[in-house]
Design a binder for these strands. Structure first.
Length: 822
RNA sequence: GCCCGGGUGGCGGAAUUGGUAGACGCAAGGGACUUAAAAUCCCUCGGGACUUAAAUCCUGUGCCGGUUCGACUCCGGCCCCGGGCACCA
């Protein structure tokens, strides 16, 4: 018997699988199920080609592969593609550092990572490989951008934007995490710049309501998206200004507190501020404060906690009370939300309360709790709950929730607001898809005609890392002719945020070679939506929200027939070591290559699935890996062996059921096998891979515990099939050693016989007052009365029943009897 | 502060319509085989009491209460850990 040589076996089968892997066009069909089964689109988040795969990738791709192989054997027509999210900053930074071109660097990385992925034995359809930085791909990224532009959903606007000094480019709101750049952790600054936006806010309502449709998504992800979109219902109320013609519009979700307004606050950037203070004695002071606030970073602003502010000298009239209230500016009011102005009700809003305390502004209570009385003197924090209206004219005495509706109706206009901002998509970087726009002195802004796409990214560019769009330095690129009038014109030199590229790649996989359109509708329709999407939770908002937006837009353009891209989503947990995320600086990185070399891909795959449930964090353990390696060796010996001498020699301490006739073993093994088929199948369907593997181990352990008589007659084919999604190489090798000529994953998935898994005898627990006292073995067909009688007759139970009155006996079929005493 | 997850042996984790807590794996201890080691195979393995041993009993799923014949599982209150959002009016 040859030893289990993982290196030899894995290399051999990876080579054999090459032609089968790249052939979704001619899907692999189980022999038993000839007609093409229903489609199943199995997708993992495509990687950024950073140079090396890490354990997170291994986990991601292994999960996807188990599902792909399982579904194929189940008869589905599986689409299981892979590609590269290849535009992005690291390539450019590497270029600056190493004097290589981003294109060359990226190509090298892809080549290396391709080899690494192939060595994992993942059954990708490499014939559909997609790379976002190639002209044939980004041509269509640009094309889609132009579609947005045509529909008025891509526009340029000057506004306050997030600037990352580290990346030397602007960022979208979604890309700022707690004031820091999501990529490089630099403190994000605010800048006034003219930039390109996609009008994702036009889809805010649909992006929100359609979350309901995503029954196959984890609840936390849906909650995060809901919060990010941040819908709120309120009213806009106009306040007249004294000594001015214009009026002040505020947004509030609490019109019930309108009578409690004691001052107003404008965002420092609100244009009305100039109108109010220009030429007054307040101008200098207000503008000083405004400049100070503007210069502050987000985190400095947070520290000020809404205490920074100054009176503008102007007053507004409360439409409900006709009271004159002062107008202030403060950093706690944001220009980007609502109208950039609020009515301040210190008694019922904590931020207003704190500001009022800090600046000695009056407090007026208009809602009081049902149980106690609230006065401006006794109040120590804002009362934000519901209550009874007071000091509110004819609304006095009403419950506040009723007054909210009535006051809103009377004084304002109902309005829905979203926290979601439009998506800033322009980047002042080189390594991305050029924005296909031309600026003409006569015609203004002109989109590049579709026939002229792609706007090619020139190779000859200087990388200084000093800021500004690198493309601006390339004359040949910048200088062009206006497509409309032919006059000399300039190209846009910003590139698209790479999240544009990743927002539609799953559609390109459906038709990757199309040079007429991004994808043919009928081909996209054939596979969309993605049946199972697998990736890290870090994209809960970013990529997943953008992709939903793109899909809805393309649906509206009638380019596809689905309006949600991902039917089911599986968010895998991180791979950690020594309690921390693997990172170079911590020195706790485990290189997948090392594991594959030492133990093989099958072991790596098995361990990464076995060590933890998919959605939870996975603590890497070298010892645990060895355990999985041992298991595969056990399977190997089981299949290739005669039993080893040591195994035969277990003479003295063997279990009772040994040395019986082989027939008995056969029956027992068959039963256990069918139970295992059932359990493993159900576990895989629920993505409980860790317990599926445990059940395979149990079965193997069971086989080992049977005598060699049992072994000799054993057909391990079904076991190999059950194991094949997890450890494809070893299963395939042993499958062929059994004499089979065709690939194991062209086999149909094993089925179980419900009659065979039935136990003839059941183990029934006998409890007295809920505590276990005895175990009974009872024929499966025994009726309740028999079981009751046997339980009562139990000697061990009797001990606890002495001098007790039995009140009732509870029989749980197939499980237990509980005798309750008084 | 708000919103989500999650607390089970020495460790990773099982136990999803309330029904034998600790499957499976790791580590540890003991044994078989071996000149020896490795590999392999077998046994033990939450804590405690009692005992030569077997047996038996008590206790135990973050903490405190509750519902129930019966609670890791359901309810109320609290503590701790992880993640997300963070002046959104």
């Amino acid at each position: 018997m040859a030893q289990y040589n993982h290196q030899e076996i894995e290399a051999k089968w990876q080579k054999c699988w090459e032609p089968i892997n790249s052939s979704t066009q001619q899907p692999i069909q189980p022999k038993a199920q000839k007609p093409l089964g229903p489609k199943f689109y199995d997708l993992v988040m495509f990687p950024y080609p950073s140079g090396n795969i890490h354990m997170g990738h291994v986990r991601n791709y292994t999960i996807g592969d188990v599902i792909a192989r399982f579904k194929r054997m189940k008869g589905f027509n599986v689409l299981h593609p892979i590609g590269w999210d290849a535009f992005g900053l690291p390539a450019e930074n590497a270029a600056i550092k190493n004097q290589t071109h981003p294109a060359d660097w990226t190509e090298k990385c892809i080549k290396h990572m391709t080899g690494q992925i192939k060595r994992l034995g993942i059954s990708y359809d490499w014939g559909r490989e997609v790379t976002t930085c190639t002209e044939d791909y980004y041509k269509w990224t640009q094309w889609i951008f132009l579609k947005f532009y045509e529909q008025g959903l891509a526009y340029r606007k000057k506004s306050q934007v997030n600037w990352c000094p580290g990346c030397q480019t602007v960022l979208a709101n979604e890309q700022v995490k707690e004031g820091l750049c999501w990529r490089c952790d630099s403190q994000v600054e605010e800048k006034d710049l003219e930039q390109w936006f996609l009008k994702i806010t036009a889809y805010a309502e649909r992006l929100l309501t359609d979350i309901e449709k995503l029954s196959g998504w984890p609840e936390p992800v849906k909650i995060m998206q809901r919060n990010w979109i941040g819908k709120s219902k309120g009213v806009e109320i106009n306040f007249r200004l004294t000594n001015h013609n214009s009026q002040l519009t505020i947004y509030t979700t609490r019109p019930d507190t309108l009578f409690g307004v004691t001052y107003m606050v404008l965002a420092p950037e609100n244009p009305l501020v100039d109108e109010l203070v220009n030429g007054t004695k307040f101008e200098a002071e207000v503008k000083k404060i405004r400049e100070k606030i503007k210069s502050e970073t987000t985190s400095q602003r947070e520290e000020s906690q809404g205490k920074e502010g100054v009176f503008t000298g102007a007053y507004a009239i409360n439409p409900a009370t006709n009271e004159k209230v002062p107008i202030w500016i403060s950093d706690y009011v944001l220009m980007g939300y609502g109208t950039g102005a609020v009515m301040a009700v210190p008694a019922h809003d904590q931020r207003d309360f704190e500001f009022a305390k800090a600046h000695n502004l009056p407090i007026k209570v208009v809602i009081t709790p049902h149980t106690s009385q609230l006065t401006p003197d006794t109040i120590t924090e804002a009362y934000v709950d519901e209550g009874t209206m007071i000091n509110s004219g004819k609304f006095n005495g009403l419950p506040s929730n009723e007054a909210l509706q009535k006051i809103g109706d009377k004084f304002g206009t109902w309005k829905t607001n979203f926290k979601l901002r439009d998506w800033l998509v322009s980047r002042q970087r080189y390594w991305g898809a050029p924005i296909p726009i031309i600026y003409c002195n006569k015609c203004g802004l002109v989109p590049v005609p579709a026939k002229d796409l792609p706007v090619k990214l020139p190779k000859d560019v200087k990388f200084t890392g000093k800021g500004g769009s690198p493309l601006a330095g390339n004359k040949e690129f910048v200088e062009t002719k206006c497509p409309k009038c032919g006059a000399p014109a300039r190209r846009e030199t910003d590139t698209l945020d790479t999240f544009n590229c990743s927002s539609w790649y799953y559609l390109r996989y459906c038709d990757p070679k199309n040079d007429q359109q991004p994808f043919a509708k009928e081909k996209a329709d054939q596979f969309m939506p993605v049946d199972q999407y697998i990736g890290g939770i870090e994209h809960a908002i970013l990529h997943l929200l953008y992709s939903r937006f793109f899909t809805k837009f393309l649906f509206d353009q009638k380019l596809i027939s689905v309006d949600e891209p991902f039917k089911n989503l599986l968010t895998q947990g991180m791979v950690i070591k020594d309690g921390a995320k693997m990172s170079k600086s911590k020195g706790n990185v485990v290189d997948p290559d090392d594991i594959v070399n030492k133990y093989g891909a099958d072991t790596a795959r098995l361990f990464i699935l076995f060590a933890a449930p998919v959605e939870k964090e996975l603590e890497w353990s070298d010892k645990g890996v060895e355990g999985c390696y041992r298991f595969l060796n056990r399977v190997w010996r089981l299949a290739t062996g005669p039993l080893e001498p040591a195994n035969k020699l277990r003479g003295s301490n063997e279990r009772g059921n040994r040395n019986v006739q082989s027939q008995v073993f056969e029956q027992a093994i068959t039963k256990k096998l069918h139970q295992t088929i059932k359990a493993v199948t159900e576990d895989i369907e629920k993505f409980f891979f860790n317990t599926a593997i445990a059940k395979l181990m149990e079965f193997v352990n069971f086989l080992y515990s049977c005598s060699d008589i049992g072994h000799r007659t054993l057909d391990i084919g079904p076991l190999l099939k059950l194991l094949s999604p997890f450890a494809p190489h070893l299963s395939e090798e042993l499958w062929h050693q059994l004499g089979n000529q065709t690939s194991i994953y062209q086999e149909a998935w094993p089925t179980y016989d419900p009659l065979l898994i039935k136990e003839d005898e059941l183990n029934i627990v006998v409890q007295v007052n809920g505590r276990v006292r005895d175990n009974l073995t009872i024929p499966a067909e025994a009726d309740q009365e028999t079981i009751k009688a046997k339980a009562l007759a139990s000697e061990k139970a009797q001990k606890f029943l002495a001098r007790q009155t039995i009140i009732k006996i509870i029989v749980v079929p197939n499980k237990l009897v509980n005798i309750v005493t008084g």
